[in-house]
Nucleic acid binder design. Structure first.
Lengths: 208, 208
DNA sequence: CGAAATCTTGACATGCGTCAAACGTGGTGG
DNA sequence: CCACCACGTTTGACGCATGTCAAGATTTCG
């Protein structure tokens, strides 16, 4: 199975009734790569992209995150990537010490729930990048998001972002999308909206 | 920084003095992908490769693991990949419920410590695959292992395995290694031994 | 010592990156 | 409300790097 199961809705800690829901506008940053981790983020709506800049200044996208995902897991005490809101995003933050209490009270399965999103996202990313052929990679990517979003249209993700995620050029992404349109597996009413019309054909094309 | 810091030596739990050290011969499997996770593995010596087979039967290598690494983190209760010993391997196992108690008492830091190896490995893998150009990818890979092994020679890793790890063909791996030999950045007294002669040149060649 | 696996080298075709230019779109300010 | 501008997308032409196929050399292991 290429698609992992990070799509389960989170059981969120109760919030004070009067609290204003934390949110970010499109383009805003939730946290920065290398910054010291003080809390994790449970996404509730919207789309976030994980970004990392290489030494040469190249931009890499490490993942796209949606409602239900938990991001911000530290390695060495700091965030592993920069989290940028693509759309308006609402979320809940969980301070590390609160999380510790949560872990103590929960079961063993609960233990790794926290790291599941990021572990799964990196795993998927590697699997996508392993596919040779731009078209296969694009189809696998679309199939992946299709399942993650339970069939909803893929929206608001720029082709440039897809390119930086799949290690392709924007031109190649555009051409691949055109082929997918011509084959009738997807429809694109707008530049930033991909509707999967034929899921079976999509997975077939993603196979090598 | 391309290279992450999973190279810290682990503080291992004390073992019974009379216990026979668990070990595996080259080619043996420590655990299987999809199998229910009952314990994690702390590697103490030797080399392990993480393998995953795609639906089409293609072999992917997700990472190489060395002394000090902790592998076997479950997602959804099962192992994320198959762990095969490349050399003779010695290790210590930690049962999941023991680990759970350990994490509960140790807090979030202990949790993140546990997943550091696999999170870091996937991260590195993605970063390597993002580099376009076979030579750059190979150089980045070599530089990565060079730092992970603290300058020791890279040994016992077959070129086929490198190919499956970097999403290249064995032929391309071989040709890239030849270029690196001709450039004088590495030496190869045997087919399965890579000695980094010029680390500076190596990192320079890995830049895009 | 023999056989199987791995590595090496060559020739060839093609798919993707690069460069360049035009088009569409969304946002901002007058 | 319209005009303009900046950014992202689209399309084309071209060259090179890498995958593919094939044959031979080397190593490893029984």
């Amino acid at each position: 199975m290429l698609v992992h199961s990070v799509s389960n809705c989170p059981i969120l800690p109760p919030l004070p009734a009067v609290a204003v829901q934390p949110h970010a506008k499109a383009g805003e940053t939730l946290f920065w790569e290398g910054e010291e981790t003080d809390c994790l983020y449970h996404l509730q709506s919207g789309i976030v992209r994980g970004v990392r800049y290489t030494e040469e200044g190249e931009r890499n996208i490490v993942g796209f995150y949606f409602a239900g995902d938990r991001i911000g897991v530290p390695v060495g005490g700091t965030y592993r990537f920069t989290a940028e809101a693509i759309t308006v995003v609402t979320y809940a933050t969980v301070r590390l010490n609160v999380l510790a209490d949560d872990i103590r009270s929960g079961g063993t399965a609960r233990l790794f729930e926290t790291v599941q999103t990021e572990l799964g996202a990196d795993e998927v990313h590697s699997q996508l990048l392993c596919r040779q052929g731009a078209l296969q990679r694009m189809c696998a990517f679309a199939a992946c998001l299709y399942r993650r979003l339970n069939g909803a249209a893929i929206e608001a993700i720029a082709q440039v972002d897809i390119a930086d995620y799949l290690a392709l050029t924007p031109e190649t992404v555009c051409r691949s999308l055109k082929k997918m349109r011509d084959s009738g597996v997807i429809a694109m009413p707008r530049h930033d909206r991909i509707e999967v019309v034929n899921p079976a054909a999509l997975t077939a094309m993603s196979l090598q």
